[in-house]
Design a protein around this nucleic acid. Structure first.
Length: 217
DNA sequence: ATCCCGAGGG
DNA sequence: CCCTCTGGAT
């Protein structure tokens, strides 16, 4: 049996990560909820740097939900082509604009349920928007980095992101969820990488179950 | 070849 | 749980 995650240890780890990465923040740094939503939709399998480049011009041409709803699909595809998965993303952005108009008067809804009901918006994107645009996080942002770290630290034994999120929510108080997402993602990108973590540089190595199991450099 | 702050469908 | 969708950087 895997030892169940120790809440006290987990909180200590999180505290250390917060001290180590005081500037950890959302890589898609948009206070406008629509911009954040669009940027996050575009971020699938794409670097945040490229998303920021692409969205820079995009927001001028598509300032609101109506602009996406009425967009020319193939033109939008071309504009976001370099972010990958561009056909899915363009179709979703247009459908999303229409859904925002029909269901929410062109505004961005503020609940997980309403956000995930939008085309192309899953749990991860919804949590990013809720936490960073509204300060109303209903959970943690579980991306590939958070998945990996939660597994390595023994915080979860699940692989399904929804169940991982449940485990992490149980581990940390609600007011820490958004910042926890940021430091975990930052740590995952800089240190606890896949497949080779830079353990010699890791600030929470002494609390990591992988000591003695995994070699690193 | 492998990775990038995923979503939706089988 | 699996698979597909896609381009760009390293």
């Amino acid at each position: 049996m895997a030892a169940k995650p120790d809440r006290k240890t987990a909180l200590r780890v999180l505290g250390t990560l917060e001290e180590t990465y005081p500037d950890a923040h959302c890589a898609l740094n948009y206070s406008n909820p629509l911009e954040l939503l669009v940027a996050t939709i575009l971020s699938a399998q794409c670097t945040d740097v490229r998303v920021n480049q692409v969205t820079e011009g995009l927001f001028r041409r598509y300032p609101d939900a109506a602009a996406y709803a009425g967009a020319d699909l193939s033109a939008l595809e071309e504009e976001i082509r370099s972010t990958g998965f561009f056909r899915n993303k363009a179709r979703n952005l247009v459908a999303c604009g229409a859904a925002l108009l029909e269901r929410h008067g062109g505004e961005i809804p503020r609940t997980l349920e309403a956000l995930t009901a939008l085309p192309g918006v899953g749990r991860k994107t919804a949590n990013v928007v809720l936490g960073n645009a509204f300060g109303l996080a209903e959970g943690l942002v579980v991306d590939t980095h958070v998945k990996r770290i939660a597994g390595r630290l023994g915080w979860t034994r699940h692989s399904d992101p929804e169940r991982i999120e449940r485990d992490l929510c149980a581990l940390f108080p609600r007011e820490k969820w958004t910042q926890a997402s940021h430091v975990l993602i930052f740590h995952g990108r800089q240190i606890c990488k896949a497949p080779t973590p830079l353990c010699t540089l890791c600030p929470v190595l002494s609390d990591c179950p992988r000591i003695g199991v995994t070699r690193s450099r």
